[in-house]
C-alpha cells in the first residue's frame, strides 16, 4: 500500500540530448495542466475564503448595523477568557472520541460478519447501508421522535420491562443519543470500505495462519487488522474530520442542551456568528476548529508509520 506522500510509481526514463521540451519539462507541463482545475478550485473556494475568515477575525463586524471595525487581537483575547469554551471543547472531544470508537468498531464488526460466505449478505449489506442515502435532516427528525420520553425507543425497552431514560433531556444520555444517531446514519459507509478492504485480503494468508494453529481471534488480530490498517487509518481520519463538523443533528435534536452538554464547537461557532451576530468572534472560533482538524490529522499521519502495515 502506498500512501499520500510516498513517491509516485511512474518512472520517467532519463531523456537523451533533447531540445527544450524534454520529457521532464513536458511532464511538468502536463502535470500542472491536469491538476490546475482542482488546484484553482481549492484556492478559490477554500484558501481565499479561509484567508478572509482570518481577516474577519481581526474585526468587530456588526452585520445588522453594517459596521466593520478593526479590533486587532480583541477576538482572540475574548476567546482566551471565554468561560464557555472549556465545556464546548470537552463536549467536542467527547463526541468525536465516542463516535470514532463506536463507528469504527461497529463498522468493522459488521464488515467481518458480512464477509462470511453466507447467503443473503447482499440483503444485509443493503440494509446497513440504507441510512446513508436517507437525507440527514429526515433521519434526524425521525430519531427525534423515536428518542422522546414517550417515543419508540422507550416503548421498545418497555417490552423488556426496562424503564428507559429521557434520552434527549439529561446530560449523559443526550450526548449518547446524538452520537448514536450519527453512528447509525453513517456507519454503513465505513462498513462498505472495510468490506472492500477485507475482500482484498488473500485467502491464502488465512490458510497459512490456520495451519500454524492460530485461533480465529489471533487470525483477526495478526492477519486481518494489519492488512486492512490503511483503511482503518483512512476511515479514522474521515470519521474524525466528519465528527468535528456535526451540526444538523445537534441543531435538530438538542440545540446544544441540556445545559451546554451537547454544544460542540461547530454548533457554538454557528451560534456566535449566526445567532448572536458576533461574526468576528465566530470567524476566530472557526480558525480554532480548522487548527484542531489540522493538528489531529497531522498527528495521525505521523503515527501511521507506527502501526499501518506496508506491503513489502
Amino acid at each position: 500500500m502506498t500512501l499520500l506522500l510516498d513517491k509516485p510509481t511512474s518512472r520517467v526514463a532519463p531523456a537523451g540530448k533533447a531540445p527544450y521540451w524534454t520529457m521532464r519539462r513536458r511532464d511538468t507541463l502536463a502535470g500542472w495542466l491536469m491538476v490546475a482545475p482542482q488546484l484553482a478550485g481549492i484556492v478559490v473556494f477554500v484558501l481565499v475564503p479561509l484567508g478572509l475568515v482570518v481577516w474577519y477575525s481581526l474585526h468587530e463586524w456588526n452585520v445588522l448595523a453594517g459596521t466593520f471595525n478593526f479590533v486587532g487581537a480583541e477576538n482572540y483575547k475574548a476567546m482566551a477568557s471565554d468561560a464557555r469554551l472549556g465545556p464546548v471543547l470537552r463536549a467536542t472531544g467527547l463526541f468525536s472520541v465516542g463516535l470514532v470508537v463506536l463507528n469504527l468498531s461497529l463498522a468493522l464488526f459488521l464488515a467481518v460478519l458480512l464477509n462470511q460466505k453466507l447467503r443473503g449478505t447482499v440483503v444485509f449489506r443493503t440494509l446497513f447501508f440504507s441510512p446513508v442515502v436517507v437525507t440527514l435532516v429526515a433521519w434526524t427528525i425521525v430519531w427525534g421522535f423515536l428518542l422522546q420520553d414517550n417515543g419508540g425507543v422507550n416503548a421498545f425497552l418497555n417490552l423488556f420491562g426496562i424503564d428507559g431514560p429521557n434520552w434527549l433531556r439529561s446530560g449523559g444520555t443526550a450526548m449518547v443519543s446524538v452520537i448514536v444517531v450519527q453512528l447509525f446514519k453513517n456507519v454503513g459507509l465505513n462498513m462498505v470500505l472495510f468490506l472492500a478492504a477485507l475482500q482484498g485480503v488473500p485467502a491464502e494468508l488465512y490458510e497459512a495462519a490456520r495451519i500454524d494453529g492460530a485461533s480465529a481471534w489471533a487470525r483477526f488480530r495478526r492477519v486481518t487488522v494489519p492488512l486492512i490498517s490503511p483503511t482503518i487509518l483512512l476511515t479514522m481520519i474521515l470519521t474524525i474530520v466528519g465528527s468535528l463538523q456535526v451540526f444538523a443533528q445537534i441543531a435538530v435534536l438538542t440545540q446544544g442542551g441540556p445545559g451546554t452538554s451537547t454544544t460542540v464547537l461547530v454548533y457554538y461557532l454557528y451560534q456566535q456568528a449566526f445567532q448572536f451576530h458576533h461574526f468576528g468572534y465566530g470567524a476566530t472560533l472557526s480558525l480554532v476548529l480548522f487548527l484542531i482538524v489540522l493538528v489531529l490529522t497531522a498527528v495521525q499521519w505521523r503515527m501511521r508509520r507506527r502501526w499501518v502495515f506496508h506491503e513489502a
Binding site: 499520500l4 506522500l5 509516485p8 502535470g31 491538476v35 482542482q38 488546484l39 481549492i42 484556492v43 473556494f45 477554500v46 484558501l47 481565499v48 475564503p49 479561509l50 478572509l52 475568515v53 474577519y56 474530520v241 468535528l244 463538523q245 451540526f247 461547530v266 461557532l269 454557528y270 456568528a273 461574526f279 470567524a283 472557526s286 480558525l287 476548529l289 480548522f290 482538524v293 489540522l294 490529522t297
Partner: peptide
C-alpha cells in the same frame, strides 16, 4: 507536485461552516 498535493489536501480539513460567509 508535493506542495500542490498538500495544498489540495488542506481542502479536506476545512469545514464548510467555516467558509460559508466569505
Amino acid at each position: 507536485a508535493g506542495i500542490v498535493f498538500v495544498i489540495v489536501l488542506s481542502g479536506l480539513l476545512v469545514p464548510n461552516e467555516v467558509t460559508i460567509i466569505p
